[in-house]
Amino acid sequence: MRNYKRQKQLILTTLIFLTFFIIPISVGLGWYKIPFFDIIRVIFMPDNSVLSTIVWDLRLRRVLAAIFIGAVLGGSGAAMQASMRNYLASPFTFGLPFAASLGVAISLLILHGGEIQRFRILVHNPFIVPIFAFIFCLIQVFIILLLAHKAGLSAGALILSSIAISFAYQAILYLLQYFYLNEILVSTVIFWTFGDLGRIAWIELNLVVIVSIAIVIPYFILRSLDYDLILSGDELTKSTGVSPQRIRLETTIVAALATSLATSFVGVIGFIGLVAPHIARLVFGGGHRYLIPASMILGSLILTLSDTIGRVIIAPVTIPVGIMSSLIGVPLLIYLLIKGGMHGYRD
């Protein structure tokens, strides 16, 4: 029985090492190939060479963004699935990225928060876009909580209504695009929704890293036992001295914080929040002691891998990571669902 535990620890440790190992590899791949040891040298001793500029200004930033954003999205998905007791729960199915998209569109179009300049979006004020994305995420969280607590909807009904609301956000987004016929602005929004790690700036990345390390990652990890507890029902949770409502509320807010930050800086990123926890569960089982860190690491790995492949596959053109992560994550999940045949996934 101890071997089983050790096996999980071994896989988890391997995945953590793999994540660190993938950083220089991913940095090295691309239109401009860089040898492995040069990358290590430049990472630890930056200079003024072209090499250093490519590593620091182009590659490293997006790889680090993939790692942190993948981690918080994967963790958010696992935490939301547990706290809502629903396999379909994730920032994505709760409509958070769609709400954030609308917020970003409004800030870009109406408040002139940014514009497109030769294939990249120039954000005039780096804080107006994320603030709007965050506000719209909060509106969506507020709607979810209102539906959950005031209307008393079950988690299943909550997801259904969130998906419906997502369509409404998209409808409003289309409406905005319809009236702001300026094709540059419309393409700005469309380009934004593609989800591209390359557009994150260092200052934005720093913000993501600080919030991830200070709030999101420790919160989800420290709640691991409570997520195990809440799976067995609200009544048992209450009788063990823990408030299920509080866990749900806090988890939703922390996940919203993570998702809105990620979405506002890099755009809509596919199913990472839905796919990573399920893959993690099929590998590590249901205990959140392993499931939460595993979902985070798998989120990081899938996102980094997707971004790297997207950058290399038809270089010099880059396929946005939002597209690549869905194309890679979804078949992987379905393969594991069929292969795994574990309880709760098969009749």
Binding site: R85, Y87, D228, L231, T240, G285, G286, G287, G344
Partner: peptide, 13 residues
């Protein structure tokens, strides 16, 4: 739900 192991479940106690 959630494929919780017996160990993890008992630990919640």
């Amino acid at each position: 739900m959630g494929m919780l192991s017996v160990y993890d479940f008992v630990m919640t106690g």
